[in-house]
Design a protein around this nucleic acid. Structure first.
Lengths: 232, 232, 232, 232
DNA sequence: GATGAATGAGTGTTCATTCAT
DNA sequence: TATGAATGAACACTCATTCAT
């Protein structure tokens, strides 16, 4: 259609073909994201079983069958929503480097702040994950267990390292238990801070929460632990 | 209903009447309990939405419509199941009396041990409570929030008292946050201990868990908190 | 409520109870039959896949979910329809008794007449069974295969007996094949007679058809088989 | 499309134009055939209602909408598949020529052998034709009726000729019925031989089957038809 | 008090078909 | 020509709930 040999029909055709393909892919990805966002909202609001495909497609503004163009099934869509969230969380957690310039405590606080940021950003989804997600499907449960296990492993690793350096007092066989305590404290802090009905105390800065959590974890609540009078 | 003096509401008649009423009430209560127990099992196993009235009445061994003789609706039944569990938990928690003969730490451990006992006894229901119960209905959520709030208030009270006695170092405005940490540690410990797939570490004695949790709460994980290098 | 000791409340209550139960059962059976008839009509008209539960319940005049009170699933309902038909056919076929007063040929004709009667009575269902029923579900296919196998076994038995008596000329290894021929002739006769568009030749009496079929089976179409000039 | 004489519809241009058209047609025909073959396989395997356009286009390796470039609708495609099969069958049946060198019996056997060959070659399609094809659509049913009618007319013609030559004993008004018998025997033989579960008797040579079928048709199963004791 | 029967609304999912590109 | 995207209608099936008996 043009006489310019530099953009001969062959090349031009190919380019236009690529352009079309690219545009099509972008459109497809956009729709997909549109559906994923809608699904995220609906799942977050009603839980897995309470969420209906109907509600998701309505929220996304597409027709019923369209949903199935992008997801094989309800469960697959939920798994994807979940995976995205888990991925963001994983990415937010940087391994603590003892030899780095920033002191470990600051690195930990940074991690916590990033995690809290994500949790607050997706508060609805967080609520569902913390409170409703399990028991739906073995696959989903495994994914959630994996997430927990991953975080627990991180904490266990930190505690073990601390023990080796003589910093941590926890008996080796109690490390798993204490890791649970730490994880639970984090979860509940997130629940109470982002998810509960507002007005329960002043809203707190993520940095403050992270710092307090770390403080609590490391030192407990006593002023002078030697007074503890614990057995042994 | 009859004027015949032979079956008049005389002594025997009255007794027989009361007896009938009493027996009827007892029967009714028995049926009700039978249904509640069945509902508890089914709700615990499948969650609120996953549980069907069908399954509940089948588990109870009564007919389908009978369910509605004892409960207005599915939600009402669920609420009652939940309320029963919450009540048991509340009853297990005794307020700590500083002036009592038993030292406060022992009282706390006793509370925890009782709570852990209930949680383990009804592990399925505990799982649902901790992981799936919210988001079903505003009323249910409020009930669960109440439970949380009650426990948190207890913890806040303890911390405040500790602060007044100069034992607790936590800043006053951080007390709510730390209470969350404590509650979360308890919840997660319960989750990991009773609910997770078995084989993750040795099963622990409730006393051990309670003691460790209290220890963690009070002292944190550090051997020497003065090394903490915290800001301030 | 009555003073007559002969119909004391106990006995009367029991009797009335039985009456109610019986009436309830009768009602239930009636509904069930009503649904079965409707299903038979719809399956016959549209085939298994073409028939929708919607159409069946509408034909039966009940609500959608009611269907599932009486049948576990579509396939179960179809299987029952099928089983009923097969049962009627089986019942119509009496084993031929050589020592009976009625000559074997008459017994065979009677069997055929009875079978043709059933096939005509349920012409729609017959059409579906002969033309559409297979390929839907392995279980259904097996049931149909069983029916075929049963009839084929009957024919094979007859032919073998005939051979032993020196009446039948068919080589032993060809008996199965000839049994197929006989069954096919029967099926197609039924198809062409009851099921095809009308007006193709005069409608025939069942007795005539049965007689002709038997004649064809036994003697073939030749006037003088010795002219056949067959190989061997 | 351009006035430039260099690419005017000159000799080369015309040839290239024809070539393009031809190539396009060839491509179109190829695609069409590709789709028809795929449709044949899918229809044969799952029946009309069980087959989905999705499955057909996937089997053909083309995109979903492409199907509709070559066929107006699912039914049209099915009709075409069927028509092709019917056409092959028709082509396989040569009218018997009494004056030909090969004796009529051999001509008949040849016809049967050819038909059996086609049926076995497309066993899946045969199964569907014999067992599932009807009831889909009035048009389809008519086409299948036409096939049946055509074959029946051939058989009727043979029988009538035989009668005229004094070879066939069948009463004139029974000829249609006997033609049905013959067709049915053929169909069932095909069903039992090619389509049924294997292992039911030794697999038979087409020539043997054809011969046996002809034998059965002509002579029936009796050794001595004079013993028949038929009425009249 | 107890129940079998009944049902409207809803579930997740698949379908044949259309259309813009 | 070819196709990816889209969709309304339909599917089999389940649900919590009501009601006559």
């Amino acid at each position: 259609m043009s006489a310019d040999p530099a953009i001969a029909p062959g090349a031009g055709g190919e380019e236009s073909g690529d352009g079309r393909v690219l545009r099509a892919r972008a459109l497809r990805d956009a729709r997909r994201n549109q559906l994923l966002q809608a699904a995220r909202r609906v799942f977050a609001e009603r839980g897995y079983l309470g969420a209906s495909i109907n509600a998701i497609q309505a929220e996304a503004g597409v027709s019923r069958a369209t949903f199935y163009l992008y997801f094989d099934a309800k469960l697959a869509c939920f798994a994807e929503v979940l995976a995205g969230f888990v991925e963001r969380l994983r990415a937010a957690i940087a391994p603590v480097d003892i030899r780095a310039a920033t002191p470990p405590r600051e690195q930990l606080v940074s991690n916590l702040v990033r995690v809290l940021g994500i949790l607050e950003e997706d508060a609805d989804l967080t609520r569902m994950l913390l409170q409703q997600a399990r028991g739906t499907d073995p696959e989903i449960d495994l994914a959630l267990d994996d997430l927990d296990r991953g975080v627990l492993a991180l904490i266990v690793g930190s505690l073990t390292t601390g023990r080796r350096l003589g910093l941590v007092r926890v008996d080796e066989r109690d490390i798993g238990l204490h890791a649970s305590f730490v994880l639970g404290a984090l979860k509940e802090a997130a629940s109470q801070t982002f998810l509960a009905a507002p007005g329960r105390g002043a809203p707190r800065d993520h940095e403050e929460i992270a710092s307090a959590l770390l403080d609590f974890t490391l030192r407990g609540v006593l002023r002078d632990p030697t007074q503890l009078g614990e057995p042994g």
